[in-house]
Simulated scan of single mutants.
Amino acid sequence: MKDDFVASGRSVSDLKAHLVLTTKYRRKVLTGEMLVRLTEIVSDLCDKWGCKMIEINGEEDHVHLLFQYYPQMELPKFISNLKSISSRRLRSEFSERVNQFYWKAVFWNESYFIASCGGVTVTVLKKYIEKQDSPEEGRRRGI
């Protein structure tokens, strides 16, 4: 899948994040069918938030989501919304399966992992920046 830059106003960005969500108590509740439905739910939510789902996959007790977003996006609000809506829909649509693992209205663990990521490693980017042809004054000051 080709990743496009996000342009708005006077800026162009290419921000990507890797999000990992785990099921409550790491219970092995997710099935293949649930992952397919979760992919649809996440794709719809990304569209509504103006971001782009790049990839999603997971196992029985966790999911990985790679998405592109714009700088003004409030990531904690997006993640909270994503967890809330996906939890509610999965519990509703797969109630027989989910009720085998949870007796309360829960699905996701309260915590999550998120990391920014890009097309190159930090080492490659650092070398690129170091090799910039800075003005003489900048070179003397170590800029």
Rank of each mutant, 00 (worst) to 15 (best):
M1Q: 07
M1A: 10
K2H: 13
F5G: 09
F5E: 13
F5C: 14
V6T: 09
V6H: 14
A7D: 09
R10A: 08
V12H: 08
V12W: 11
S13D: 04
L15C: 07
V20G: 05
L21Q: 10
L21I: 06
T22K: 10
T22S: 14
T23S: 11
T23Y: 05
K24Y: 11
K24H: 09
K24S: 01
K28L: 07
V29S: 08
T31I: 01
T31M: 02
T31Q: 01
T31H: 01
G32I: 06
M34Y: 09
L35C: 13
L35V: 12
V36D: 15
R37Q: 09
S43F: 04
D44H: 02
W49F: 06
C51S: 08
C51T: 11
K52F: 07
K52D: 13
E55I: 14
I56N: 11
E59F: 04
E60F: 12
D61Y: 08
D61V: 10
L65W: 01
Q72T: 07
L75Y: 03
L75D: 02
P76S: 10
S80N: 11
N81Q: 12
L82D: 03
S84C: 15
I85S: 07
R89I: 15
R89G: 00
L90N: 09
S92F: 01
E93F: 06
N99I: 00
F101T: 10
F101D: 11
F101Q: 08
W103E: 13
K104D: 05
A105D: 15
F107T: 11
W108N: 14
N109A: 13
S111C: 05
F113C: 14
I114R: 05
I114F: 02
C117H: 04
G119L: 04
G119A: 05
L125W: 01
L125P: 00
K126C: 04
K127V: 06
K127C: 05
Y128G: 07
D133F: 01
E137W: 13
G138E: 15
R141Q: 06
G142C: 02
I143Y: 12
